[in-house]
Design a protein around this nucleic acid. Structure first.
Length: 578
DNA sequence: GCCGTTTTCGGCCCGACTGTTTTCAGTCG
């Protein structure tokens, strides 16, 4: 069984235990195990065979048994017996705002509700309000929650969320009482997809009410879902939930840190505080048992840096706060130096209006130069990509001529001739070797037949990788959210092969390809594989929007040495000279 | 259920808001 499926089952076990009303720490143990397992790069079969599962922190006797059963037999008796308590549809019901484990469990037991449709029918018939702990208002909220799940995806692209958040922030800034204000949450952590927007501001309490008013009456607000003195929640007309928190100035760094998350990162920081005998919340440090000091409370915390220092850590950039090793790295002074916009010299996966980009070669070159870049790689689609107006051999020649002519006009800037050649289902490439040889570099990508088995898809890509003209494997992600294109892939095998063959792996080249799994990046780095994270103009309107769509434009995606910084650009340049 | 070197038992992060209660459980982040 594949690892992704196993982590899904562990999560399911955790959720089923919540529904059963088990000890919350017990169910959390399974969710933790799922998350931890997802970050394991070693071969699962080997780990099971050698009995090494238990050596992973967070995997104990029960979770190890489930994992090992799933790996060896494809099913787990513990999971199967838990499943008997609730039908599968129950997981959908859990997605509705306001429906947590207790309420879901109750409506199932009393009314046999096990799907969103059932829930809607019961709400419309007024059956829910008669249940204990429910009422008229709860019923209305559930109907709203159902409507929301149906009309909006629960996640939004970062650039959509960013624009929506900025609009709110701008309105708030008109209030003179605001001392500091910042976007927090996953948007600050620069996740590729955003669940909701968190904004934190500091102000005197006498100003709180009028600040809240600006927020809840903003023209972009569709409806208010919660309104209090320090916290309000709204749904914006784009469908994104947005929360505003108002705290006193001295609490601002704590609130910012708290609401930036991630949840798992916060839990770790709080545990560190506890070791000193302190409790940490969004307002500050306090002693767990007043009078029984273990370590004196830190004084004058003015910034997040001060908080990290107080618990013995180096400052951790928001982009790294996922509890995926950053706490340990920070404690030992081994945090990576992150890429910044200034590190970028160019990129290699751009489309133009030759295929499905929105801009001409001239416009793309001008935009790249305006960004201060030294080069831009043009990689339009190949002929089989008819949906994207892929280039035939003749049009490739025409584009090459145009690039050559343009290059003569540049000073300190160069356009590279590339292609994003389709990897056909057979693993053959969409251009002959002779045509491929005419490019400066070749990106090979899968754009069709996504429903192959993991083994076949991996074989297909491996075959393409072995072609000597292929420089880079295009958009390897394995998890493509919000998009129809999605395919299974043995990432470990591909990275190993790229390492052996000296190929580059490109991640998230496409603004629509989301949720980079940086654990995979970490593994690739261990294997010495050069990773290129590239913007392109595929969906957005050219390079003007490019900084939203891509990792390379944002710090935090990887370490500098992974990407097209001075050192690795030289490596890429070497490729180009070959 | 998982962890731990001062602990093999006892703790595990913490608070705001809602809607239902009539003092608080449930949900969320």
């Amino acid at each position: 069984m594949e690892k992704a499926k196993i982590t899904e089952i562990l999560d399911e076990v955790g959720t089923l235990l919540e529904l059963k009303g088990e000890n919350p720490f017990k169910s959390r143990a399974f969710h933790n195990a799922a998350r931890i397992l997802a970050g394991v790069t070693e071969d699962l079969n080997e780990l099971v065979k050698n009995g090494e599962l238990r050596s992973i922190k967070g995997i104990g006797e029960s979770t190890a048994k489930i994992i090992s059963d799933l790996v060896t037999t494809g099913s787990s008796s513990d999971h199967e017996s838990l499943k008997k308590y609730f039908p599968a549809g129950i997981f959908d019901v859990m997605k509705i705002q306001g429906m947590g484990p207790k309420k879901v469990s109750l409506v199932y037991k009393k009314l046999k509700i096990a799907s969103i449709d059932d829930l809607e029918k019961a709400a419309r018939a007024g059956k829910l309000e008669k249940l204990e702990g429910f009422g008229k208002k709860t019923e209305e909220n559930i109907l709203l929650g159902i409507a929301q799940v149906r009309t909006h995806a629960s996640k939004f692209h970062i650039h959509i969320a960013e624009k929506a958040a900025q609009a709110i922030l701008e309105s708030l800034s008109t209030h003179k009482g605001i001392i500091r204000s910042e976007i927090a949450g996953s948007l600050r952590r620069k996740k590729e997809t955003i669940g909701d927007i968190d904004i934190v501001v500091s102000a005197k309490s006498k100003d709180a009410q009028s600040i809240m008013k600006i927020f809840t009456t903003h023209p972009n607000v569709e409806r208010i879902t919660g309104e209090g003195e320090t916290k309000s929640s709204v749904v914006l007309n784009s469908g994104i939930n947005c929360d505003l928190r108002i705290v006193e100035e001295k609490a601002f760094p704590f609130a910012l840190n708290y609401f930036t998350g991630s949840k798992d990162h916060n839990v770790r920081i709080r545990s560190l505080a506890r070791e000193n005998g302190w409790s940490l919340n969004e307002y500050g440090f306090s002693l767990i048992e007043p009078g029984k000091k273990i370590k004196p409370l830190p004084k004058s915390i003015k910034s997040e840096e001060d908080i990290y220092k107080a618990v013995g850590l180096q400052y951790v950039e928001p982009e790294l706060r996922e509890d995926l090793g950053e706490i340990e790295a920070s404690a030992t002074g081994k945090l990576p130096t992150l890429v910044t916009w200034n590190d970028i010299r160019g990129t290699f996966h751009c489309h133009t209006n030759y295929s499905d980009g929105h801009n001409t070669l001239t416009e793309m070159a001008a935009a790249a130069q305006k960004l201060g870049w030294e080069y831009l790689g043009i990689a339009d689609h190949s002929k089989v990509a008819a949906y994207a107006n892929g280039l035939t051999e003749d049009r490739v020649k025409k584009q090459h001529k145009e690039i050559e002519t343009l290059n003569e006009t540049f000073k300190g800037f160069k356009l590279f001739k590339g292609t994003e050649v389709d990897i056909l289902p057979s693993g053959e490439l969409d251009f002959s070797d002779k045509v491929l040889a005419s490019f400066d570099y070749v990106v090979a990508s899968v754009h069709s037949s996504f429903k192959m088995s993991e083994a076949d898809m991996t074989k297909r890509i491996m075959k393409a990788l072995k072609n000597k003209y292929v420089t880079m494997l295009g958009h390897l992600t394995g998890r493509l959210l919000l998009e129809r294109e999605s395919y299974p892939l043995n990432q470990t095998e591909i990275i190993n092969a790229a390492s052996d063959l000296g190929k580059i792996i490109e991640i998230n080249a496409h603004p629509m390809r989301l949720d980079l799994d940086w654990r995979m990046v970490k593994y690739a780095r261990q294997k010495g594989v050069l990773i290129a994270i590239n913007p392109d103009s595929h969906v957005t309107s050219g390079l003007t929007d490019v900084k939203y769509g891509v990792g390379i434009a944002r710090k935090g995606w990887c370490e500098k040495r992974d990407i097209l910084n001075t050192k690795s650009v030289k490596q890429v340049d070497l490729y180009l000279k070959k």
